[in-house]
Design a protein around this nucleic acid. Structure first.
Length: 470
RNA sequence: CGGGGCGUGGUGCAGGGGUAGCACGCCACUUUUGGGAAGUGGAGGUCGCAGGUUCGAAUCCUGCCGCCCCGACCA
């Protein structure tokens, strides 16, 4: 194709450019990398196989850590009596606007409407009240993997959908202190550790302001990360519920002195929103860049052409990789142009590509392409497995370092709300929490920024992290 | 709930009273194949729904439905 001057017209980019149109870029990546698409009901999401594979990897990593804290998985019903929601005043006030309510069933109007769970505090605590009798029943540590529905007016795939997948943990403890320690343990050992080690995304951890706190909680702890456009995304929250639900649902136990006491509780969750974070924290103009540890496919061996025994050789390399513990697949679709296949794997963010063609094989080599930096190197066939393994390890580290440098480089120290607001154009502001009194937080909210979390600095003074957020 | 816009092959769009079109995608064959392949031949649409006007409606009129965007609202 040529333009009026006769010069070749530039090929249109596959994705809108991140720098020009970040939301547009995000939509393009989610579609072209085949992660998800919109469902027929507004706000619902079809998670496609590659997107779901990412979720499954994330589930494995979270589940492992959740179980390491002593929690057990269980499952509670999707449908909850509407009256349950009303038992805790702040909780129902917080969730009422987002509820999906079922009024009919079996062809008849229901006597009591049931709600589709927006979260399961109420139904689980109904069970806890029956399960917990004495201090020997505590702590009770339960997790469930489930879908929840919160009616959203402005949905965005993964980031904010009406139905989403998550895990929600619910625990009961004998003392406030024990609940406090457990909530923080979940925050750091489950959420922060998974997000930083597996997703290679650095986080800021802290406490939510009263305004941002979970409906019904005493304290909400959060992990916040910075996306490539400088906006914040909440990665996971852990709540200290105090005795609010214990009193509402009458969850009591007999302590070692024979006294009846209410339990102290926590709840905590992380959702498919983390997939959105993965996209926005690492993706570039060529598509996703998936950190190797979370990648469903860590290496793809591309058979460039079909000549001679190259197909067998490529297959042998692939099975060697798999045997060495690398999640590797073989792309032997020689009928599809090489360039198209390269672009496809780039879009999907596969960390390492191994190109196997006549040129390489004649030289006893393969070409190794690293997605995180687009570098192509020739390596001897004999050391291919080792090279892939070290490339994967390097990619994991470099993606984290890059994200960490971006975040720390874009946290501006501010002493008042005006400079903090200015800083949120490009990143986060760190501002003394004292500036939030007298309507400071509302002033920021009215201008599109919010207080992401509160945390103590080296001197013990409380600082706030202010940002624009998803 | 206010303001604006759009409903036409799988996707994205054009057409605006007289045979339903284009691009991409899809299927087949051939030639290709190292960074988005090309040629040839095919398949695929009761033009959102219901009325109305007309010899004739995708097109004009009325009503309805759905979706999108911007506000407001919100983990």
């Amino acid at each position: 194709m040529t333009d009026a001057t006769g010069a070749a017209a530039p090929k249109p980019t596959i994705l809108r450019r991140q720098r020009n149109d970040f939301p547009g870029w995000y939509q393009d990546v989610v579609a072209k990398a085949e992660l998800a698409e919109n469902g027929p009901v507004r706000g619902t999401m079809v998670i496609r196989p590659y997107g779901y594979a990412l979720w499954e990897r994330l589930q494995q990593e979270l589940d492992l850590r959740i179980k390491a804290t002593g929690a057990q998985n269980a499952y509670f019903p999707l449908l909850i009596p509407e009256s349950y929601l009303h038992r805790e005043a702040q909780h129902v006030a917080g969730f009422s606007p987002e509820l999906a309510v079922v009024t009919h069933g079996g062809g008849k109007k229901l006597e009591e409407p049931v709600v589709v769970r927006p979260t399961s505090e109420t139904i689980i605590n109904g069970c806890f009240a029956r399960w917990i009798h004495g201090h020997r029943d505590l702590p009770l540590l339960i997790n469930q993997w489930a879908n929840v529905v919160r009616w959203e007016l402005r949905p965005r795939l993964f980031l904010r959908t009406t139905e989403f997948l998550w895990q929600e943990g619910h625990t009961a403890h004998a003392s406030e202190q024990e609940a406090h320690v457990y909530a923080l343990r979940i925050l750091t050992e489950v959420y922060q550790d998974t997000v930083e080690k597996e997703l290679a995304i650095p986080v800021v951890t802290g406490r939510k302001t009263d305004k941002e706190r979970f409906a019904g909680a005493v304290t909400t702890w959060t992990c916040e990360s910075m996306m490539r456009d400088g906006k914040a995304l909440q990665m996971g929250t852990s709540h200290e519920l105090g005795q609010n639900f214990a009193k509402a649902f009458d969850i009591t136990f007999t302590d070692s002195t024979g006294q009846q006491r209410h339990v102290w509780q926590t709840s905590w969750g992380a959702s498919t929103r983390l997939i959105g974070a993965l996209v926005m924290a690492h993706g570039d103009d060529a598509g996703l860049r998936i950190p190797p540890r979370i990648a469903p496919v860590q290496a793809v061996v591309i058979l460039v052409r079909g000549e001679g025994d190259s197909a067998d050789r490529a297959e042998a390399i692939t099975s060697d990789l798999v045997r060495a513990g690398v999640r590797a697949i073989l792309d032997r679709r020689i009928g599809i142009p090489f360039g198209r296949r390269s672009i496809e794997w780039e879009l999907k963010g596969i960390p390492v590509r191994l190109e196997v063609g006549p040129r390489e094989l004649a030289a006893g080599q393969v070409s190794l392409v690293e997605r995180h930096c687009s570098r192509k190197t020739s390596i001897p066939l004999a050391s291919a497995i080792g090279s892939v393994s070290s490339a994967l390890a390097t990619a994991q580290e470099l993606l984290f370092d890059e994200a960490r440098e971006r975040m720390t480089g874009r946290i501006v120290v501010a002493s008042d709300v005006e400079t903090a607001l200015e800083a949120t154009q490009a990143g986060f502001a760190k501002m003394p929490a004292s500036q939030l009194t007298d309507g400071g937080e509302e002033w920021l909210n009215a201008r599109g920024a919010s207080v992401r979390c509160l945390l103590p600095d080296e001197t013990g003074a409380v600082q706030s992290i202010v940002a624009r957020a998803y």
